[in-house]
Amino acid sequence: MSLNQPDAEFESHLAFRNFLGKAFGIVCMVSTWFSIGALVVLLASVSWQASGWLNWSFITNYDSRHPEQAGVLAGLWGSLWLIFFTTIFTVPVGIGAAVYLEEYTQNGWIKRFIQVNLSNLAGVPSIVYGILGLTVFVRMFGLFGTKERVIELSLFVLTLEIPVPFGTTVLSGALTLSLLILPVVIVASQESLRAVPSSIRHASYALAATRWQTIRHQVLPSALPGMLTGVILAISRAIGETAPLVIIGALTYVAATPGDIESPADLLRNPGSVAEVPFSEFTTLPIQIFNWVKLPNSDFQHVAAASILVLLIFLLVLNGVVIYVRNRFQKNVRW
């Protein structure tokens, strides 16, 4: 059949196929704009409510009974440290577990069993992790009685005073949040490891690389950007979590920041105070928001809106940092 001989059946089908393609594109576009629209509405309403309330003293003040004097200092530093330690616990464990499952274990019923459980754990309500955190970290099964003891641990120049059980501290909070997001981080990391073509591994082995060298030089560099995306999403989720932290007993009103670090300058002046952070009491931005929203005085709604804005900016900065790091890694992999 030559090109100038029309094929009626083919052409009517072709018109329909082109139509399908266009329709699908429009559906996708609508979905995108729907999400963006929702975000814009949220931002607009929050900004409108917060206007006039979000100023510098809002960032540097502790909470107060008077709406004009209430601020997010404790919640901001609390959230910051919580996320910092959550990340430190989650990334190595999550990526390590994913590498072990994908690169070291053989397919078999044990792996399938772990896999099914991981996916299930990712769907467990966060409040359940709160209960787990309360039992395991805050109270340590009551093994040490109710009276708190302090274990001293010397690390080079630092002496850590570790309370046992941990009680409601940044450490307990971070460990609880780590448990909460680990399944998601592991599953996402596994996905990106699986996306590395196995032919790359084979080529590496054929050049007399050991398994570790293959993982270190071929698999991880290719998979890391995808893994970090999983980590970003999970951590962003964790920042907004309130329920598990309330369960483990996080306070709504705290008159001190963790480690008494109230500004970056404090941190630089006395870096050793970081060692106290994990064992300090804390509150977080979402907990403060939750608390303010409940109050009858309507001015506190504006305070809540202002702190929602702070939380959103906090998230934005954090994501920006991780995306920057991710792009740095991506430079080493040159597809």
Partner: peptide
């Protein structure tokens, strides 16, 4: 494998320089 090198049926460059 150090002594017995191999060229694969499909070429598989690493995503590097």
């Amino acid at each position: 494998r150090k002594r017995v090198g191999m060229v694969f049926q499909k070429s598989i460059p690493f995503p590097k320089s």
